[in-house]
Simulated assay, not measured.
Amino acid sequence: MSVPRPVQASSAAVRKSMQSNKGRDTKPELALRKAVHAQGLRYRVSTRPLSAVRRTADMVFTRGKIAVFLDGCFWHGCPEHHTKSATNADYWAEKVRRNRERDAETDALFEAAGWLVIRVWEHEAPQEAATKIVHEVTKRRS
């Protein structure tokens, strides 16, 4: 089995853009967390819900066993907003396919362990997504 070679950025501008992608505390994440917090819920941020599974949820409600993932439209292949890359198109298409495959595996692993997984697209309105999350947390608590 061959080891995949790392992809080189096609230009200095692309390299700079890729390096500036943050793993947490993105604008959509902060907006969602602020909206959920404003509705009275408290949560853990950027935590592994299952220590044996190397997956980090963006928000975790430990008592209710709820893991929230905020998925980026490009990185997770949003059916509404995903665009194909003009450069290294095959690489990026495969990357998104693997991300979606990993997302499905994560959902299955967490659900098998009794967790509810909530996935929110980055383009969703933070208030609407927060209301959905609050509803599920409240339902699990009762």
Rank of each mutant, 00 (worst) to 15 (best):
M1N: 06
M1V: 13
S2Q: 09
S2N: 11
V3D: 05
V3M: 09
P4A: 06
P4W: 12
R5N: 07
R5E: 08
V7K: 03
Q8D: 08
A9Q: 02
A9C: 04
A12R: 12
A12N: 12
V14P: 03
V14H: 04
V14Q: 09
R15K: 12
K16Y: 06
K16C: 09
S17L: 15
M18A: 11
Q19Y: 02
S20G: 00
G23F: 02
G23P: 04
R24L: 08
D25R: 07
T26P: 07
K27E: 10
P28T: 01
E29T: 03
L30Q: 09
R33T: 02
V36I: 15
H37W: 13
A38R: 07
Q39R: 14
Y43H: 06
R44P: 05
V45Q: 08
V45Y: 05
S46P: 01
P49W: 01
S51T: 09
V53E: 04
R55T: 01
D58C: 08
D58R: 05
M59G: 02
M59E: 00
V60Y: 02
V60R: 03
V60S: 14
F61R: 00
T62Y: 04
K65I: 12
K65N: 10
I66R: 07
A67I: 01
V68M: 01
V68H: 00
F69H: 13
F69I: 00
L70T: 02
L70H: 04
D71N: 15
G72L: 04
C73G: 00
C73L: 11
F74R: 03
W75D: 01
H76N: 06
G77I: 15
P79F: 10
P79I: 14
E80S: 10
E80G: 04
H81K: 13
H81Y: 14
H82R: 07
K84L: 15
S85R: 13
A86P: 07
A86D: 11
T87W: 13
T87R: 13
A89G: 01
D90R: 00
Y91T: 07
Y91H: 12
W92F: 14
W92E: 10
A93R: 07
K95I: 05
K95F: 08
K95G: 07
R98T: 10
R98N: 15
R98Y: 11
R98P: 06
N99G: 05
N99C: 05
R100L: 04
E101P: 13
R102Y: 03
R102P: 01
R102A: 14
R102V: 14
E105R: 09
T106D: 14
T106L: 04
D107T: 09
L109V: 11
L109N: 13
F110C: 14
A112G: 12
A113N: 06
L116R: 15
L116T: 09
V117Q: 07
I118G: 06
I118A: 06
R119I: 02
V120N: 08
W121V: 00
E122C: 09
H123D: 12
P126C: 08
Q127F: 00
Q127M: 00
Q127V: 02
Q127T: 02
Q127R: 02
A130G: 12
T131A: 10
T131S: 15
T131G: 09
I133K: 09
I133L: 05
V134R: 15
H135F: 15
V137F: 12
V137K: 03
V137Q: 03
T138Y: 01
R140E: 08
R141V: 05
R141H: 06
R141P: 00
R141W: 02
R141F: 11
S142T: 03
